[in-house]
Every structure is written in structure tokens, then in C-alpha cells.
Nucleic acid binder design. Structure first.
Ligand SMILES: [Zn+2]
Length: 360
DNA sequence: CGTGCCGGGCA
DNA sequence: TGCCCGGCACG
């Protein structure tokens, strides 16, 4: 089944979408929807096509799927620290971060997103990985907003009928962490740093391609990337653990809260009309993702003094991205993209002339 | 060593 | 002009 048809089917409200979460190789569960494609959705053995909330899709083996009539959470796999979950709290469902999970006791300790000072313990059976009925995730058709923002965004671009404002306003919220992550380090080229559960794994990820003439996605982002993106997406306003995306384009200090947001920023602001020249996945060279824990995320850049919240912010840079950091900002195309990505260099660099893309 | 790039070559 | 590369300086 092609992705185009998959998207089409999913966008069509007549298609039944089952909201579940799937366990990835990093031990975290990621929410998404199952799409009953060519194979019937029978909750039984086999693999299912799943679209994750960050726009990636893959075939997922049923024993990794949690929710609905699939696996239960007490099947031996502990929830990991930082896992986003949903529990009942004084009668209403709230989002929380898992602190730890005792498999023997069957108990999970969680920290409420909205009230980080509150720690609660729940039986694992009462912990959901997917919000029950997230009203704000419904579109006008009443179809659960189980699609990724990426998909929504593309659909919205195609036909401007979708109310883009809600989606955009939410994710476009610029954060005020500029002082933290404006270092001009490119992400470098990670080779086998991060584990990639691809071909010979139950879960494999592919990037969403739009229907542009590009034949296929050659670059597969490491799992950790899109999974973090997803968590940021889901826990958009969720406190203590959050991932932000810092543009690393020379002198640009834009920080956005979502993966689709930073991708769109790079495409529109830094590539403009040349967006067609962007190699698939090339945007990934122009931002870093930073995990932060903080008391409050401020949405308006202008409302904050330059020296604001840095002290209360704890940064945990993704280890692989920090390695290429150097004080001499003399990072040029060769260093940023690497020899193996020579086709991404600016022309002058390709000719061993003075770089025109990264000026000093 | 790797990296940036000048100068010079070739179509 | 577009394109490639030897070689050198620099860290
Ligand atoms: Zn360059």
C-alpha cells in the first residue's frame, strides 16, 4: 500500500482508525494509529500498519502494540523514565511522566505534567499510553485527530480548507531558550552512533514522503530522533521533560517546539523557493534537538528578558550531537555534511573554493 | 592527521 | 564560465 493511499484513507473519515501505542527498540512506547489497510484489523497475530503521531509510519508486530484489544501494559516490559502516560486524577484524565515502574509490584510512579510537584502511584492497569478522548484532537468531522501534524500540515497546504490556525499556532510557539541552544554546531553525520532498528527488526521507520516526484526516501532518521519529536508533539504543554528544536543555520537562533515546526522553519525561511533543491532529510542538518526540563515554557519571545530562565533549565543534549562541537566556528560544508554527503555542499566548497554558505 | 581554500589547469 | 584538484597553511 502506498503512503499516498494510506494518507488518503486515513484522512477519509470513513476509515476506522484505532489509536494505540507501540513499543520501540528504545523501550519507549509511541502513540499512533493503526490503519486497516489490505489486511483486516482483527487484533490478532501479525503485523499492522501504524502511523505514528510524528508522521512516520511502519509495519509493527502485534506483540509490540499496546491498547485496545492488543497487549496489556503488564506484560513484562517496564515503562521507562520520561514515558508520557495518561492517568486518572481526581476524576479527570491528566498527562504525566513516568518516573519509574516496578514490574513486580505492578505499580507505576508518575509525575503530573501540569503539576510537576505532584507525584502519584498508579497500578499499571490504570495507566494509559494514549489519551482517551482528546477533544482538542478532533477535527470537524469528528475523526479523532490521530494523524500526525506532519500529515495534517501537508493536507492543509494542499487544500486551505483545514483550519490551519489551530495546528500552527500551537506548534509554532517559539520558545525562549535561545541562549541555550544557539551554538552553531551542525548535527554532523552520525553513522552508527544511534541504534537503528530497521530492516531486521519488528519496527522499521520510513519517512513520510509527499507526492513530489521524489522516488523514495533514502535517508532514514534514527529512531531516537523521531521518537523524541513525537513526545514533544504529544506532550506539547507538558512540563518537566520536553524536547525543543534549535535551528543551527548560521546566526539563526530560532527555537521551535515541534519537529514539523522546525522542518517547516528551515524549509521556508532558509531555503525559500529552493525548497525543491532540498534533499530528502537534508533539513536534519540544520537543527539540533535539546531535551530540557523546566518549570515553565514561555510562548512569547518578546516578553522575556535576554537573561531569563537559563538557571532553572537543565539541558541534556543528545549525546551524539554534541560531539562535533568546537569553538572555532569555522565549520564549513565539508565538516558539516561530511565527505559522504558531498552532494549537499555548496558549489564553492565542492570546487575547493571559499565557502559561500557558512560565512565567518 | 583533517580542513579550508588559493592558484592553476582543462573543457 | 563551470568544474576539478594539487598543494600548502593552519590547528
Ligand atoms: Zn560551503
Amino acid at each position: 500500500m502506498s503512503l499516498a493511499s494510506l494518507q488518503h484513507r486515513t484522512l477519509n473519515s470513513s476509515v476506522k482508525c484505532v489509536r494505540v501505542a507501540a513499543r520501540a527498540d528504545d523501550g519507549y512506547f509511541y502513540p499512533g494509529v493503526l490503519v486497516n489497510g489490505d489486511d483486516a484489523l482483527n487484533y490478532g497475530q501479525g503485523t499492522y500498519t501504524m502511523i505514528f503521531d510524528n508522521g512516520q509510519y511502519s509495519r509493527v508486530d502485534y506483540n509490540r502494540i499496546v491498547g485496545n484489544n492488543f497487549q496489556r501494559l503488564d506484560n513484562g516490559y517496564p515503562l521507562r523514565y520520561g514515558q508520557i502516560a495518561y492517568v486518572s486524577y481526581y476524576g479527570s484524565q491528566v498527562a504525566a511522566n513516568v518516573i519509574d515502574h516496578s514490574v513486580r509490584e505492578g505499580e507505576v510512579r508518575l509525575q503530573l505534567c501540569k503539576q510537576p510537584e505532584v507525584t502519584i502511584i498508579r497500578n499499571v492497569a490504570e495507566v494509559n499510553l494514549v489519551p482517551d478522548t482528546p477533544n482538542k484532537y478532533r477535527n470537524r468531522n469528528g475523526l479523532k485527530r490521530s494523524l500526525s501534524r506532519e500529515v495534517i500540515y501537508k493536507a492543509a497546504k494542499r487544500r486551505a480548507s483545514l483550519d490551519e490556525d489551530n495546528v500552527m499556532g500551537e506548534e509554532e510557539a517559539a520558545l525562549v531558550l535561545t541562549t541555550l541552544c544557539n551554538s552553531p554546531l551542525g548535527k554532523g553525520v552520525e553513522e552508527s552512533d544511534s541504534p537503528r532498528p530497521l530492516c531486521n527488526s519488528d519496527i522499521s521507520y520510513r519517512q513520510i514522503c509527499d507526492e513530489s516526484p521524489r522516488t523514495e526516501c533514502s535517508k532514514l532518521p534514527p529512531v531516537q530522533e523521531q521518537t523524541k519529536a513525537e513526545q514533544a508533539d504529544i506532550s506539547a504543554n507538558c512540563s518537566p521533560i520536553k524536547t525543543v528544536y534549535c535551528c543551527t543555520w548560521p546566526k539563526c537562533r530560532k527555537v521551535l517546539s515541534t519537529y514539523p515546526g522546525i522542518i517547516r522553519h528551515i524549509r521556508t525561511i532558509h531555503f525559500g523557493d529552493n525548497t525543491e533543491k532540498l534533499d530528502n532529510g537534508e533539513e536534519e542538518f540544520y537543527f539540533t534537538e535539546v531535551e530540557v526540563t523546566m518549570d515553565k515554557v514561555v510562548d512569547d519571545v518578546a516578553s522575556v528578558k535576554p537573561s531569563s530562565p537559563t538557571e532553572s533549565v537543565f539541558i541534556k543534549e543528545q549525546n551524539t550531537y554534541i560531539t562535533k562541537k568546537s569553538k572555532g566556528d569555522g565549520k564549513k560544508c565539508r565538516k558539516v555534511y561530511g565527505m559522504e554527503n558531498r552532494h549537499l555542499w555548496c558549489t564553492q566548497c565542492r570546487w575547493k573554493k571559499a565557502c559561500t554558505r557558512f560565512l565567518d
